[in-house]
Amino acid sequence: MIKNKDTGENDDTNLSLGANAAGVNMRSAPSLSKQKQTRMHSTYTDKPSIDEWSPLLKIIARDRDRKAFARLFDHFAPKIKSYGMMLKSQHTSAQMAEELVQDVMIKVWLKAHCFDSEKASAGTWIFTIARNCRTDFIRKANRINTSLTADDLWPMAEEEEPFTSLHQRRIEKNIHSAVAQLPAEQADVLKRIYIEGKSHSEVSAATGLPLGTVKSRVRLAVSKLRTLL
């Protein structure tokens, strides 16, 4: 059975959930402490100005640098695991989530040379890989009978016209500070949607907020971002 996101169908195993966006573990400590010099406040209000992951990903592509990969892994793996915790099957969701982490991170390693920082940040690039992998993962785990794959549904933006690419670069540059200016409650809803991979109804179920409130927070956040980008 494919999971029905629309009905907000509860999953007894992991609706306890969710949350945590990043599960920082000890291995992330070095990079975090470095960031802390410039990030004194909570993540919602601080102002991360530089995308530190894109240069790292370029190094991985160019030098096949395992240490750089390990750093990338330590930051992104717990977040991808969080995103994968919504997967369902006869396995425990934690196991599936770790399989997803492995799928995604191997793709990151193998496809690093395809990463183009002119078009997207490393975070966006990895996010789209994680999203597509998760969709294919669900399809395979549920033995869904279709020739469609995630790459059909979310075509890579590679063929976009130059204007779009320019526009995209501006967005990527500004979105960090834009997100930092969002009210915490809106950022929290976005985190649940993007990092925990929950539909609006699932966010509503997990937080106890009415669906209308979840929707209005998304709407407010996105229109605020629009004015800031």
Binding site: A21, P48, D51, W53, F76, K79, I80, A120, S121, A122, G123, T124, W125, I126, F127, T128, A130, R131, Q168, I171, E172, I175, H176, V179, L190, K191, Y194, I195, V222, L225
Partner: peptide, 8 residues
Amino acid sequence: SLGGMMLS
């Protein structure tokens, strides 16, 4: 991009 930001 927003997803990328949340992930980064």
